[in-house]
């Protein structure tokens, strides 16, 4: 028996995804240096019960994400996606983070078509999740951490 049909599993579960699912960068909630610059969000995927709690801390001028940490349970896609997100977001300008998040959502909605080389290059390691967009039932898994990030950024901007 062949290992999988036409290597679809290898395309979906890129080595980078499996590695991040095991390593989970940014995992473990960290206390903030200044609680007034922190936003936290809890998101759950009601179809599978997967959940993530994600905390962001902004720089003193609120222009950049100075720290991000998270905890959660979920499938390799959701765990790896949030892990990659941590790498991309910590230290980045908030405006760039929002743009990356939008681009990643767009990639997930592309139904396997992708965004083209240039746009995907700009996503860095998050482009490895392109294969997820072929499986509508899994898109929510890849977006779970990103939804939490957007919600946490809104909360910190409102001072919640």
């Amino acid at each position: 028996m062949s290992s999988t049909s036409s290597g679809a599993m290898e395309q979906l579960y890129q080595q980078l995804i499996l590695d991040h699912a095991r390593e989970r960068h940014g995992y473990g909630l960290r206390d903030a240096a200044d609680p007034s610059r922190v936003g936290e969000s809890f998101q759950v995927n009601p179809t599978c019960g997967d959940e993530v709690r994600l905390r962001v801390e902004l720089s003193p001028d609120s222009g950049a994400v100075s720290d991000l940490s998270w905890e959660g349970i979920g499938c390799s896609i959701s765990q790896a996606s949030t892990s990659v997100l941590s790498d991309l977001v910590i230290g980045a300008q908030v405006s760039d983070v929002v743009a990356t998040s939008d681009r990643f959502s767009e990639l997930m909605q592309s139904r396997g078509a992708g965004l083209g080389e240039e746009a995907e290059d700009a996503l860095g390691d998050a482009a490895a999740f392109a294969g997820v967009s072929k499986y509508p039932a899994r898109v929510k898994c890849a977006l779970l951490g990103w939804m939490a990030l957007r919600d946490a950024l809104i909360k910190v901007s409102k001072g919640e």
């Binding site: 999988t4 049909s5 599993m9 599978c48 390799s76 896609i77 765990q79």
Partner: peptide, 12 residues
């Protein structure tokens, strides 16, 4: 995770 188990089975 069960989602990953299901995905792998689905591929077959």
């Amino acid at each position: 995770h069960p989602h990953d188990v299901g995905q792998f089975l689905d591929d077959a």
